[in-house]
Design a protein around this nucleic acid. Structure first.
Lengths: 337, 337
DNA sequence: GTGAAAGCGCTAACAC
DNA sequence: GTGTTAGCGCTTTCAC
């Protein structure tokens, strides 16, 4: 079956024996608890070091009723947005000695249920749901007791659920205000499918920033460059063209810029373009490079980690909070000198 | 401190009491071990179900000396290539009841060491290293005993190390053969930095497929669209232009296609272009859509999971193996009808 | 100051 | 067939 316990792994008893003290004493020395003579303490530390002793967290967890692990359940197959979140999350949790179980549910409720079940068996100290696909996700079918649960870049209908999201509306305000500050007056909005909450929020931010909204200038479509190109073509066909375009994401923005380029329209002189996501793969390859709005996802992950740690400590941390976005101006709105 | 053990979590003893049997009997019933009357078995199962009992994997692991967890250490911050690998890996491991600890070392040896240490404390049954950045990674500074270790999309110098990689050379052969089969005779290769092993292997595959190699047609540069555009410009300036270009990745390929488009060169009629990675973000947005070579990374992840499971079972699984790539022809090489 | 012993929740060997 | 018991490796009272 298994390869058995690793030959070079020692138990606390081995350390005690090696140091010539009792098991309890060795434990106190290694945990800096109780009152011990410095001499004994050093003796044990030395013995542990010589043996390359690493305490068995499993036994520790069993005793303490706390496993120092949390589970993360992603619903977008570890997609592009999940990555930076995970990175921030992992950094903060690791610093607190907490390890992260990664699970991918891919929007399959059955699979998600199995994952949660497995994680509960591992006695995780907390649970994180991420992945934006389902804007409002149902309550998981398993009783989670009072296990801390945090929704990051995703939401829950449960009353009092703790959710952490980027401030899409604020980000859209930043983008629109930026275009206005450049003297643009006729600003179009080419964005994604209306059933995304992020789309609705960004649109709301855009509309709120304008003194007068022209519905003809708002175009919904898929999240693709092809849609950006098509939408740009439509806008160019209008009797009065826009002088700026706020795109719902960077792929759409890039498509727009390409179509404008094809039509010999100068960006940003004739039409300024700004995207959303600040995805370098898009912003940097675009000609000119794309201005965009950064959702600070890594920071969001770090914040999530800190919040979860507080929840594990027993603090009440309910409700939805949104982290501010950042404007990143580049050549597609600000002409290079 | 901690919120203590969840109130709705019961122990095996509770189940036994609830079913009116002994602890040992309950264990046998739930583990389908030993010989029990069907009646007793059902009674226990019913009790467990009523209580919503979930065995404590920690205790189980402690007893069995096997934790049913493995650690994954990524060195590219959960980058684009790691994602599909993780997805495949996770699927296979989850099916085997094994959970995955995710760690991000970001090529920082100190951080990697801390991660390994933490994972050893958690008594993981195996370790996976991934992330291609460091082509040849040093032996981790910690004694891993006979813990199964697998390098996926990454390598190790340790003799007998188990490595799993895509067959870059084979992929390059596929691409080059494809271009040859279309009747192209002057095939250029625009690729990434020479210090990547993948670059060297792909180049070798390209060279091996040609009867005569012209060094002037091989261009190394960064992994970017901008480099693709620049390289294309250089190739166009040559006295005799190539009639096909094999790019080291899809970003370079897309840059090439764009530059050709800018210069009114028809793709694929005048020059056929093929990329590598089959990254849909690039292949689909490109005009025309990009032919490419798929490394089947999800499959690689699945294969890695199966291999690791065999290693955990105690089977010897050393040496490097490479998984075949797949050709994905699109409009940038095959003219649409 | 240090050692002995109970117990975290589970499994497996051994009684009955 | 079923119950009892001895640990897995650790922490933590409680004696001495």
């Amino acid at each position: 079956m298994s390869q058995g316990k690793s030959p070079n792994r020692y138990t606390l008893r081995d350390v005690a024996r090696h140091a010539g003290v009792s098991l309890g004493t060795a434990s106190k020395a290694l945990n800096k608890s109780g009152t011990l003579r410095q001499e004994t303490r050093d003796k044990v530390l030395k013995a542990a070091d010589e043996l390359g002793f690493r305490p068995n967290d499993l036994a520790q967890a069993l005793h303490r009723g706390q496993s120092f692990t949390v589970g993360l359940i992603s619903n977008d197959s570890f997609g592009r947005f999940t990555m930076p979140i995970m990175e921030g999350l992992e950094t903060v949790l690791h610093a607190a000695g907490i390890a992260l179980f990664m699970c991918n549910a891919t929007d399959d409720p059955e699979r998600e249920k199995r994952h949660i079940d497995q994680l509960l068996g591992k006695r995780v100290d907390g649970l994180i749901f991420t992945g934006r696909r389902a804007d409002r996700r149902p309550v998981p079918g398993l009783a989670l007791g009072n296990l801390p649960v945090l929704y990051v870049f995703s939401q829950s209908d449960e009353p009092g659920a703790a959710c952490l999201l980027p401030d899409d509306e604020g980000g859209a305000r930043l983008a629109t205000a930026h275009l206005l500050s450049l003297g643009r007056t006729r600003i179009a909005h080419v964005t994604g499918p209306e059933d995304f909450e992020a789309v609705r929020l960004r649109r709301r931010g855009y509309e709120a920033s304008l003194s007068k909204v022209d519905p003809a200038l708002i175009l919904h479509g898929p999240w693709s460059e092809a849609w950006g190109r098509e939408a740009a073509t439509r806008l160019l066909a209008m009797p009065v063209r826009p002088d700026a375009i706020f795109a719902g994401n960077d792929q759409i923005a890039r498509g727009i810029v390409e179509a404008l380029r094809d039509n010999a329209i100068s960006v940003p002189r004739d039409i300024a373009v700004i995207g959303f996501d600040n995805w370098s793969v898009m912003t940097e390859a675009s000609r000119p490079q794309l201005s965009s709005v950064d959702m600070n996802l890594k920071l969001l992950g770090e914040e999530a980690g800190q919040r979860l740690i507080r929840m594990i400590r027993g603090e009440r941390e309910s409700g939805t909070s949104r982290l501010p976005c950042t404007l990143v101006p580049r050549a597609s709105t600000v002409p290079t000198p």
